[in-house]
Structure formats: structure tokens, C-alpha cells
Amino acid sequence: MKKLLPYLLVSPYLLHVAVFVAFPVVFSVVLTFHSWNIISPMQYVGLANYERLFNDRLFWQAIWNTLRFLMVHIPLQILLALMLAELLNRTVRGASFFRAAFFLPVIVSGVVVTILWQQLLSFNSGIINRMLTAISLPRVAWLDDPAVAMYSIAVMATWKNVGLYVILFLVGLQSVPEQYYEAADMEGATSWQKFRFITLPIINPTIFTVVVLSTISGFSLFIEPYIMTEGGPMNTTLSAVMYIYKQAFQYYHMGYSATLGFCFALIILFVVVIQKRYVEQEV
């Protein structure tokens, strides 16, 4: 009895893990070797799904789209968050108001934010294009130009999430003792030198956290293109997650979709490991 009690106590958690984590993982790995459309029984197909994946140009385009998104989104996110945090860290009047204002989009539903931005970016009636016209600049097809659309989405996603990272950076900045800056003042450092040689190295761990968090959240890009562009124009905003979703719930290729998901998870893992290596060398 004594030996059983601990197991009894953790059993709800174990049950949860079994049902919602372990089973889906195992099941989806099993699925990658099958063809299944939910209605008919599963059919074992060996490595056919993997073979198809390597020849699926659309999947690799979706991966490339996602990477293009990340390449704009992550640097922009970090730069903007760091700048805003720096500003808020000084005793600005109404700092708590701005802090709340930047954080608001984070907690508002992604669907709402996306619809809002869809209107802002609309080619004919969007405020942004109207402002461009007002200063006699040409209008931009923010969501319809294949060369632009993904970057518009990257900017929008940055706007939505930046508040979270501002908070993280603020915590980081506030952990730097004021005396470091005073010592640097005595040594003759400029504001930029203080930032470059003192702030940045000290908040490096926070930067790493933000890079990893925004990489992971960026890889799961879905709502924005799904609502605004449906992956278009010419599949240039089709994100990896969106493609996996389509394979599963539009075409009912459950086995293939699981294969894509599995492969995509490996790619994410690979990227994060590289980031970790790089940043750990820095510290």
C-alpha cells in the first residue's frame, strides 16, 4: 500500500500525459507509415509518405516561406522590443500606460488582430495606403504582391507579440545595477557605448530567451496567413503549419500530414539547437 500511494497521487498527471502527449506522439509517428483518410481503415504504406515529402515542392516552399517570415520577424521583434524596453526603462511619464498599451495586443485574440490589420493593409481602402496617397506616394499591394505579402505578415506578427518581449527585456534591463552606468559615465562612455559594452552583454541571456521563444512561436505561424491571404498570392504566404493543416483537414491525408509534422518538428529542433550553440559561445 505504502508503495502504491505515490503512484496513486501522480496518476492524474500520468493519465493526462498518456492521453494528451504520449499517445498523440506515438500515434502520429505510427501514422507516418500509413495512409489514412479518417473514414476508411488505415493502410500500411511503408516509407511512401517520406518519399513523397522529399519530392513535395509545395512543402519545401512552405518551409522556405516560414524561414523568410522568421528572418524578418525575429530581428525586427528583438530590435523593436529592446528599443521600447530601453525607452520604458527610463523614467518616462506614463511608463505604466505604455507598458500596458504594448502588452494589450498580446492578450487580444489573434483573429481579432488579424482582421484589424487586414483592414489597415487593404489595397483600396486601407489607412496605410491612404496615408501613402496623401503624401503622393504610390500605393503598395501589402497582401497581394508575392514579393511583399509575407513581410507584411511578419510586421503584423511583430506588432502583436512585441509587448511580451518588451516585458522580458524590461526585466533584463532592470537587473543591470545603476552603478555600472555611473562607473561608465566616469570613464567617459557615450550612451551607445554603455548600451553596446554593458547592457547588451549583461542581458545576453534574455536575448537568447527571446530568440528561442520568438523562433518557436514564429514557426507556428498560422492564423495570420490563414485569415488574411489563405496562403496566397502564389503560395508565398503558405506557412509550414498551414500546409500541414491543409493536408490533414482539407485533403484528409492524415498519414502524410503526420509525416510533414514530424519532419517539421525535427527542423525546429535543429534550428533551436544551433541558436543555443551560438549564443552559449557568446556568454
Binding site: 545595477p177 555600472y180 555611473e182 562607473a183 566616469m186 559594452f197 554593458i198 552583454p201
Partner: peptide, 10 residues
Amino acid sequence: AMVFQNYALY
């Protein structure tokens, strides 16, 4: 030059 109480070494 100033020497701070808690040294303020980087």
C-alpha cells in the same frame, strides 16, 4: 575617478 562601494566591476 571614483571607487564605488560595491565596486561596480563589469
